[in-house]
Amino acid sequence: MTRTIMTAGAANPDEASDGRRPASARWLIAGAAALVALILTMGISTMTRLGNDQVVSVPAADSADAGFARDMAVHHQQAVEMAYIIRDRTTDEDVRRLAYDIAQTQANQRGMLLGWLDLWGLPKISSDGYMAWMEGEGHDGHETKSGSLMPGMATRTDIDQLNKARGQAAEVLFLQLLTEHHAGGVTMARACVEQCTVPQERALAKGMVDAQQSEIVLMADMLKERGAAPR
């Protein structure tokens, strides 16, 4: 049902109207991401509770594992929000397919991160604020735009501009904002790969790095096709 909503207006969501390679591979990746999400969540659940009496230690509330889960859930939510905005601002099928992939993948991953916090019995909001978990640096030590919560996140002004844009102007702004958003997400995911201790969470973070770097390259090509470039 979600797929139909995100690709409304397309004759066939798996075929590009300009003759370029079909997007079937991306749909398969999205499905695989959902399956991996289920497997990883089950793995953490098994690791957290081994039988009725034996409970394995879970990350501390101020650990990198908990901090990454909390912050990346917020980071992902904004990407999903922007993906749904662009759906209604353009009829370009390539951009709409990319938005669909981002919305589905990051919504699934966000659910995993919040689910793990529930399994660990940890709060979803940190009293220390965002990014305190990143070793050796506080929030002020990371590259963030004025008014942005975390690395790569769009500001409220950015979101307002995206809401007002239409057609190719909206496409360009979306691709620029998501390029910045992905770059910030990669920085955070790499930190988790280095600092997190839960194997399943580190595996998820590594997958985020690989996938988002690939999409950054794709978005650079899409911007070039529109006579634009990353900001």
Rank of each mutant, 00 (worst) to 15 (best):
T179W: 08
S24N: 12
Q109W: 04
R97W: 10
Q104R: 12
T179L: 01
W27F: 15
T144V: 15
R20F: 04
P123H: 07
Q168V: 13
G167R: 07
L50Y: 12
V186L: 08
Q106A: 11
A8Y: 03
A211S: 14
R26C: 07
L28E: 07
A191L: 05
A10H: 07
A169C: 03
W27P: 00
A170E: 00
A61F: 03
L218G: 02
T105H: 13
P13C: 06
T187I: 14
L173Y: 03
I216M: 15
W27D: 14
V95W: 02
A203M: 12
V95H: 01
M6F: 13
P59F: 04
A33L: 06
A11M: 06
D128G: 00
Q213Y: 02
K206W: 07
I159K: 05
R156D: 11
S45P: 00
A107F: 10
S126F: 12
T91A: 13
Y100N: 10
E180L: 10
C196T: 09
G111M: 06
A61K: 10
V80K: 00
L40I: 03
L178T: 14
R70F: 12
S146A: 12
G115L: 09
T4L: 08
W27L: 10
I85K: 00
V172W: 00
D14A: 04
R49I: 11
I44N: 09
K206A: 15
Q195V: 04
G185D: 10
R49A: 14
G31E: 13
A33D: 11
H76T: 06
D71T: 11
Q200D: 04
E171V: 01
T41Y: 14
V58K: 10
R166W: 00
I216K: 01
D210T: 14
E15L: 11
R89Y: 03
V80E: 00
V172S: 05
S45N: 09
G67L: 09
L177D: 04
D221R: 12
Q161D: 12
L162D: 03
R231Y: 08
G185P: 04
A165D: 06
D71K: 08
A83Q: 02
A33K: 05
L98P: 00
A37F: 09
C192A: 15
Y100H: 10
I44W: 05
A103R: 07
T90E: 10
P59W: 02
N163Q: 11
G152P: 04
G138T: 12
A183N: 10
T4D: 13
I86A: 03
R110M: 15
G147D: 06
L38G: 09
I125E: 14
M1W: 07
G51M: 04
D14L: 11
A205R: 01
Q200R: 02
P199S: 08
D88C: 02
A220F: 01
R96N: 08
R156M: 08
E171C: 01
L177K: 03
D65A: 11
N12K: 02
Q212S: 07
H139F: 01
G115N: 13
